[in-house]
Amino acid sequence: EMEYEEITLERGNSGLGFSIAGGTDNPHIGDDPSIFITKIIPGGAAAQDGRLRVNDSILFVNEVDVREVTHSAAVEALKEAGSIVRLYVMRRKP
């Protein structure tokens, strides 16, 4: 069973403070093209906020749908998102 969360982060000097993997051209798990959080960087915006978790998958960055995009398109969406970034994420319920 999945749960969904909308997380708004303010981009810090060091960016959003997380790493991603995945994409249609580089699936992270099997042939699932989802964009997954692979690392939360200590002291970064995501770590300070505390809600984003490793293995969360990002569905939307602001209004941009990143469910079926290449890795570089997801990176671009995050880069272009401005200083306030709304992430709509999905994760397995614990």
Rank of each mutant, 00 (worst) to 15 (best):
A77M: 02
N62H: 11
N55C: 13
G44T: 03
E10V: 06
V75P: 00
R11Q: 12
V89P: 00
P33A: 11
D25M: 12
P42E: 10
N13S: 10
D56H: 02
L52A: 07
A21Q: 12
D32M: 08
R51D: 06
G23V: 05
L87F: 01
R92T: 03
A46Q: 02
T24V: 10
E68V: 06
L9E: 00
E3F: 15
F36S: 11
R51Y: 15
G43D: 05
D56N: 12
T70A: 09
R92E: 10
L59W: 10
E63H: 09
A74G: 12
S57R: 06
F60D: 15
E76L: 09
V66I: 07
L52D: 00
P94Q: 04
K93M: 11
G50A: 08
E63N: 09
D65L: 03
M90P: 14
T8E: 09
S19L: 02
I84P: 13
I29V: 11
R92A: 09
I7V: 10
I35V: 09
K79I: 01
A73S: 10
E80I: 07
G82Y: 10
L87N: 00
R53P: 00
V66Q: 02
R11A: 09
I58K: 00
V54G: 13
A74K: 01
G23Y: 04
A47E: 08
L78G: 01
Q48H: 05
T24I: 06
G50C: 08
S14N: 02
I41T: 08
G82A: 11
I29H: 12
Y88M: 14
D32Q: 11
D56F: 01
G44L: 07
A45D: 05
E63F: 06
D49C: 11
I20S: 06
E76S: 05
E68L: 08
E1T: 01
A74D: 00
V61S: 03
A81E: 07
I29G: 12
A81M: 07
I41F: 07
G43Y: 12
L16A: 07
D25H: 04
I7E: 00
N26Y: 13
G82H: 09
N62Q: 08
L59G: 13
S34A: 08
N55T: 15
P33E: 12
G30T: 13
I58P: 02
V89R: 14
R51H: 06
S83L: 04
L52M: 15
R11M: 04
G82F: 02
L59R: 15
N55M: 13
N13Y: 04
L16Y: 11
Y88T: 03
F36N: 15
M2D: 06
I37D: 00
I20N: 01
S14W: 13
E3V: 10
I40G: 00
N13K: 06
R51A: 08
R11L: 07
A45Q: 06
A21F: 10
I37A: 10
G30H: 13
K39N: 15
G30D: 08
D31I: 07
I40D: 01
G44Y: 12
R92D: 08
V85Q: 01
G17K: 15
N13C: 03
A77E: 09
F36Q: 08
N13V: 06
D49K: 14
G22I: 03
N26H: 10
A73D: 07
D25Q: 05
E76Q: 05
I84M: 12
G23D: 08
S83C: 04
D31R: 07
P27G: 08
D32N: 11
F36I: 05
G12Q: 08
I40W: 12
R67M: 03
G44N: 03
H71R: 07
M2K: 09
M90Q: 08
M90R: 11
I58E: 00
E68P: 04
V75H: 11
S19R: 15
E80P: 04
V75L: 14
R91Y: 13
L16R: 02
G17F: 02
V61F: 14
L52W: 00
G82V: 05
M2I: 04
L78V: 12
E3T: 06
V61H: 00
E80K: 04
R86M: 15
S34H: 15
E63T: 10
K39A: 12
V54M: 14
Y4P: 03
T24S: 08
E5F: 15
N55R: 12
L52E: 00
E1R: 01
G23P: 08
I37P: 02
I7G: 00
F18L: 04
N13D: 04
R53D: 12
L52R: 00
Y88P: 01
N26E: 10
